[in-house]
Every structure is written in structure tokens, then in C-alpha cells.
């Protein structure tokens, strides 16, 4: 063991709280501090937009009328509907010995931990290698498997994004647990035909833990999976896990 991994199990929270907490942890982090792994979920479901994404792509009034939160992430990329998923956030030092010298190295290191977690569940996943600038302009994040995303036989299971400050970074990501995230397309400001097409692409291009495991995942199951995720990160990073609240 070469150091500590601070693990924060935050349970389910509102969208603005979740994103403010990730942002606050990032801004409080100093280069060389022990890395943090935060594991959390969303209640109510929440549609997050990328940091620079145009809100006009979505019918915001419909989102809130459905009882969902609508917030902006501190990270880039496109929209996600966080409904039935396990969400992780890593806050660490980069460049540095643990997460390497580059953005790419940090993704690789964290992907190693995610793949270890999935492998422990018997899921044979891999990492996608490329995304075009055009695909990045689609309003729906999970519609395309970009560089560094985790897939199972070509279908995206985990989507991640980074924010980088001076010497420190935040990477958070969604491990899809069920298919509810696909309802995102219902709120796209598009005509019905185009919306249906996006929905079909999202269905064909994504998978989730329930589908892979062949069983329903209840909240208690996700709690246990959170434990396994924390253990996989600690083992993959060769760090001693310490649970705490900040």
C-alpha cells in the first residue's frame, strides 16, 4: 500500500448538491493530497448538462414538470439522465505518481479500477479508443462511445468526464444500472421522428448492469455494488481505503 484512498459514500442526493459537492471537493484539493473516491446516486433523477452545453437542446420545463432535477456539471460533454446508476467521482493530483502525467493517464488509471470492478461481477468490458469532434456535438452523452469510455461488446456501460484545475482534477462518471437513462430523449427539443431515432440509437448503443447481470438491481444491491466498487478502486490503485465524512 502506497497511501490512502479517502472514500465518501454519500448515498442519494439532489442534483445541485451532488454537483456542488464534487466541485467543492475539487477546489479544496491540493496537489499531493490523498485522492478521494466519492460514490453516490441521484434522488430525484436528474438531467445534467455539460459545462458548456447549450440548454436549448432540451425542453427544460418538461424536465422539471416530470419531477427531475436539471443542473449543469462542472465537467464537459453532453447531457445525461441520471436515474438508475452508480455514480463515481475521483479527485486527485495530476501530474503525479498515482494518476500519471496527462489527462489520458488519469483516464487509463481510473479505467483500470472500473474494469476490475466489472470483471469482479463477471462482466467482460473494454475501453473504447476514439471519438470524433462531430459526435461530440450530439446533445446526448451516451449516444456515442467516446475515447476512454467503457463498453461491453461495443455498447457503452460507463461514461466519464474530467475537469482540470492547476495540478488537480475531478473525474466523474456514470455506471449505468438500468435502462431508465434512455428517457433522456423524451426531453430533447426535436420532432417525434428525430426523437425516436435518437432513442433507438441510445438503446442500441448502451447497456447496463441489470442487462449484463440478468437480474434487477434494488437500492440495497446498488449499496453492495458501491462497496465492491470502492474495493476495486483501492486494489487497482494499491491504496488503503479509509471511509470518512468531510
Amino acid at each position: 500500500m502506497s497511501g490512502r484512498l479517502r472514500i465518501l459514500r454519500d448515498g442519494s442526493g439532489a442534483g445541485d448538491w451532488n454537483m456542488e459537492r464534487d466541485t467543492a471537493l475539487l477546489h479544496a484539493h491540493q496537489p499531493g493530497d490523498d485522492p478521494i473516491l466519492r460514490i453516490y446516486q441521484w434522488n430525484p433523477p436528474c438531467l445534467t448538462l455539460g459545462y458548456n452545453q447549450r440548454e436549448e437542446a432540451f425542453a427544460a420545463a418538461d424536465v422539471t414538470a416530470a419531477g427531475y432535477d436539471l443542473v449543469r456539471r462542472p465537467t464537459g460533454g453532453r447531457a445525461i439522465l441520471h436515474a438508475h446508476e452508480l455514480t463515481y467521482a475521483v479527485i486527485g493530483t495530476s501530474p503525479g505518481p498515482l494518476f500519471g502525467s496527462s489527462l489520458h493517464d488519469a483516464y487509463m488509471t481510473i479505467n483500470r479500477a472500473l474494469l476490475r470492478f466489472l470483471s469482479g461481477l463477471g462482466i467482460d468490458a473494454d475501453v473504447s479508443s476514439g471519438e470524433s469532434r462531430e459526435a461530440a456535438r450530439s446533445p446526448v452523452c451516451f449516444r456515442s462511445a467516446g475515447r476512454h469510455e467503457i463498453r461491453v461488446r461495443g455498447r457503452k456501460l460507463v461514461g466519464s468526464a474530467q475537469r482540470r484545475l492547476r495540478g488537480v482534477f475531478l473525474q466523474h462518471g456514470s455506471i449505468l444500472a438500468g435502462p431508465e437513462h434512455r428517457r433522456l430523449v423524451d426531453y430533447l427539443d426535436l420532432d417525434p421522428t428525430a426523437r425516436a431515432q435518437q432513442g433507438e440509437e441510445l438503446q442500441a448503443g448502451t447497456t447496463d448492469l441489470q442487462e449484463q447481470l440478468g437480474r434487477t438491481l434494488e437500492p440495497a444491491d446498488l449499496e453492495r455494488l458501491g462497496d465492491e466498487l470502492a474495493q476495486a478502486f483501492a486494489a487497482a490503485l494499491d491504496l488503503e481505503p479509509t471511509s470518512e465524512t468531510i
Binding site: 459545462y51 483516464y107 461530440a136 474530467q162 475537469r163 484545475l165 482534477f169
Partner: peptide, 16 residues
């Protein structure tokens, strides 16, 4: 001071 951001396909980086 942070004055803006650059977003690529995989990260948002602050400009100082």
C-alpha cells in the same frame, strides 16, 4: 485568476 475554460471531447480545463 481563472478567466475561462477550454473544453475538449474529454475534459474541461480552466484558463488562468
Amino acid at each position: 485568476d481563472p478567466v475561462g475554460t477550454i473544453e475538449s471531447v474529454k475534459a474541461v480545463a480552466d484558463l488562468f
